[in-house]
Simulated scan of single mutants.
Amino acid sequence: MKNRSLTRRSIRSRLGDRSQNRRIALVAGILAVLTAVAGTAAYLTGRADSSPTAATPSPSPSAASTPPPGRSSVPTPPSTHDPVVFAKAAADVLWSYDTRTTSHQAELDGLKRWMSTEHEYADWGSVNAQMPEAKLWSRMRSNAQHATAKVAEGHMPQAFKSAMAEDPGAITEAYVYAVTVTGKQTIAWRGGGAGAESRSITLGVQCRPKTECTLTGVAPQVAP
């Protein structure tokens, strides 16, 4: 009887360990998606795929030889401890640009100010992937292309909230929150423009206690 009791306790202990491991794996998996550590080749809608190349003709030599001012049109990050408020502001920045007044490098520099300084959690590559490359930016500039955004709402995805409910303490390591933002982007260029198109994006936002929120990355897929 004693050996049987020990065996039952051992089984229960192993099952408990497996359950705990599943919770840890789930939370770790979500955080990995948020910071896009696994890669960003399939980055979601944003700057790169929202800039219609068909409406952006090749620049004339004179247009390409005159760079825009070096200042950035990217605003400074908001001072907030609310990940949803920060994510909505970040989405607005990612969906807005003005090639008429901002160089490609200045735009990158402006976006970097939004990033977390904790390199183990920050994935700059996933944010950079939202921008057109320098050559495309030059073509867009020759056509005075610019875009504005209108953010509709932001929320924490259900999968993220469920994981946090399973293990509330898991967030305390990185304090990275998943936030999905929806809205519309309107693109215009010299002599024309396109209507507003729907946009959705899931961002990783780091908000440590008593520390203002920062951006950690863009998830490769939108989480509902």
Rank of each mutant, 00 (worst) to 15 (best):
W124A: 13
M156T: 13
G169N: 08
G110I: 09
A163E: 10
L108S: 13
N143M: 01
K161F: 01
G169V: 02
M131D: 07
S103W: 14
E118T: 13
V127G: 10
M164F: 05
K112R: 15
H155A: 14
T99F: 00
E133N: 12
P132R: 07
A163L: 09
G125T: 13
Q158K: 15
T180L: 01
D98V: 03
T101E: 06
V176D: 09
A163F: 05
A174G: 00
A134H: 04
Q130I: 00
A122S: 14
R100L: 00
D167G: 01
G154Y: 09
I171Q: 07
M140H: 03
V127C: 10
L111I: 12
W114L: 07
T182G: 13
V176T: 07
A134L: 05
E153A: 14
Y121L: 11
T117L: 10
D109F: 04
M115L: 15
A144V: 03
D109R: 10
G110H: 08
W137T: 06
Q130D: 06
A134V: 01
M156H: 08
L136K: 07
Q158G: 03
M115W: 12
Y175G: 01
T180S: 12
A152S: 11
G125Q: 13
T99M: 04
E107C: 12
K161Q: 15
Q130R: 05
L108T: 11
M156G: 10
H104M: 07
M140Y: 02
E120S: 12
T101D: 03
T182M: 03
S116H: 05
L136V: 09
K150I: 10
G110E: 11
P157C: 03
S138H: 05
P168Y: 01
Y177M: 04
V179G: 07
D123W: 03
A174W: 02
E133D: 13
A159W: 10
T180F: 03
G169C: 05
A165D: 11
D167T: 02
A152Y: 06
H155Y: 15
A159P: 10
Q145R: 02
A149V: 06
G125K: 12
V179I: 12
A149S: 15
V181L: 11
S162A: 15
M140G: 05
T101N: 05
V181E: 14
E166F: 02
S116L: 04
